[in-house]
């Protein structure tokens, strides 16, 4: 199952900006975060295909997964 993972802000440091991954069915957003060595406590927002999602949501073929640390502005 091919998906795209996008990282933002300091999550990109020593990782990547955008990466295509081949993952087994049933993989959740939380699994992806763990596999990247990101502390879940530091995760602020996760989106699949531009919609907010929970960490236990399973990803589907061709999904775009975006992972942001806790950020703000305005």
């Amino acid at each position: 199952m091919k998906i795209t993972v996008k990282l933002f802000a300091y999550f990109r440091e020593n990782r990547f900006l955008r990466e295509d991954q081949d993952l087994p069915a049933g993989t959740t957003v939380g699994d992806i975060i763990s596999s990247l060595g990101i502390d879940p406590e530091e995760v602020g927002v996760t989106m699949i295909n531009s919609r907010h999602c929970a960490l236990d949501q399973a990803v589907q073929e061709n999904d775009q997964v975006a992972i942001f640390p806790v950020i703000g502005g305005g």
Binding site: K6, F8, A9, Y10, V45, V70, I71, G72, G73, G74
Partner: peptide, 23 residues
């Protein structure tokens, strides 16, 4: 507050990518 810390690093412009991602 972690948001204060991110504001110190990236400024408010940290929002371009997340608002873009949100469509």
């Amino acid at each position: 507050n972690p948001i204060s810390q991110a504001l110190g690093q990236y400024g408010t412009n940290v929002l371009v990518n997340i608002i873009n991602e949100a469509g």
